[in-house]
Design a protein around this nucleic acid. Structure first.
Length: 348
DNA sequence: AAATCGTGGCA
DNA sequence: TTGCCAAGATT
């Protein structure tokens, strides 16, 4: 019963404090199209609202329906996703759209269990779509919910070990109706008040129920296991020009930057790549080094360039340099291109 | 089940 | 500047 009071208090708060977001209906309004809910949830995985906004707008304008997205060329979708990161999401996005069209008559299934069978939809996203788009009583647990609950109960067990207990509490709090608003309220609370750093407890609608608030440092929760240090890896990328075009390759589907266009490079899987065997027959110019930090390692990428004497011996796409922005390069290689562009500017 | 997979903002 | 962090999924 106390749990019901808590969820009611949160829903009341949400009715007057919900953030207005492009993919969201205001509390009480009809839910948005499942396509838009799904698209936004995939984009928002481990990604900030600010970063998602322009991509959501671009995708929905270009592909207004799941049928349109399913019919698009994969390379177009990958290029449109460039810069957002976690590129497996874009591959799964397309696979999911095609499955919806071919196996589900163009309509998203309404239950968590069915949603979870689709590519790219896991525990969080399945529950979020079921609750937000279809009004199901599904329990949504993301990093915001974990943080809010860890503080409400002052959970001393570190993440990720505390996950099962946190989920159980989240399930006990989930209301039978308005579960979608409840989920979004928890996430808004976590994003605007119960923030990771410097929580603003004075404005919190759950202050009276929060055990962490009674401690001298509510922001200490959730406790987290220590992180591993990021190793530094090194590699070399090649800017190979010929007739106002530059050679691009495409990364294999699996692995880093899977499916994305890229400059040819030595790769950087190993700690030290050893002597780089650059493509032969080219007089190389050094452009400099790009520093880039990935999830589990940092990369120092040396960028060298030169002119190919022939287009033989080079596998890939010769892309017009004037429209290189449209190639959809991931940020790492966009940085390398910017480095080259700045140098070429000086040479003019 | 621990590792892998991007990026930008913020303190 | 450096580390932390974000509406996680997949294997």
């Amino acid at each position: 019963m106390a749990d019901m009071l808590l969820s009611d208090a949160l829903l009341r708060w949400y009715r007057s404090h919900a953030r207005a977001l492009p993919w969201r209906a205001q509390p009480g309004e009809a839910p948005p199209d499942a396509y838009r809910v799904w698209l936004s949830e995939i984009m928002l995985q481990q990604t900030t609202v600010a970063a998602v906004k322009p991509y959501f707008s671009a995708f929905t304008e270009r592909w207004p329906t799941v049928e349109a997205l399913a019919a698009a060329a994969n390379a177009e979708i990958m290029a449109a996703w460039a810069g957002l990161g976690y590129y497996a999401r874009a591959r799964n996005l397309h696979a999911c759209a095609r499955a919806i069209v071919s196996d589900h008559d163009g309509k998203f299934p309404e239950t968590e269990a069915e949603l979870r069978t689709l590519p790219g939809i896991g525990a969080y996203t399945g529950a979020a779509i079921a609750a937000i788009a279809f009004g199901k009583s599904a329990t949504v647990v993301d990093a915001n919910v974990e943080r809010v609950i860890a503080r409400l109960h002052a959970i001393e067990t570190p993440l990720p070990k505390a996950r099962p207990a946190i989920r159980a509490i989240a399930e006990s709090l989930t209301p039978e109706i308005h579960a979608g608003d409840f989920a979004q309220a928890m996430m808004d609370l976590g994003a605007t008040i119960c923030t990771a750093r410097n929580p603003d407890c004075q404005r919190c609608p759950l202050q009276g129920a929060c055990l962490a608030f009674r401690t001298d440092d509510p922001g200490r929760f959730p406790i987290k296991a220590p992180k591993k240090a990021k190793p530094v890896r090194r590699g070399t990328a090649y800017w190979i020009e010929r007739n106002e075009t530059v050679l691009l390759v495409r990364h294999p589907e699996r692995g880093m930057l899977g499916g994305m266009r890229a400059l040819p490079s030595t790769g950087w899987r190993e700690a030290s790549p050893g002597p780089a065997d650059a493509p032969a027959g080219i007089d190389w110019t050094r452009y400099g080094t790009v520093s880039h930090v990935f999830t589990h390692f940092a990369l120092e990428l040396e960028v060298v360039g030169g002119r190919a004497l022939t287009d033989e011996d080079h596998q890939g796409e010769w892309w017009p340099i004037a429209t290189i922005e449209e190639a959809g390069l991931p940020t790492l290689f966009a940085k390398a291109v910017a480095l080259v562009g700045a140098q070429r500017e000086n040479d003019q």
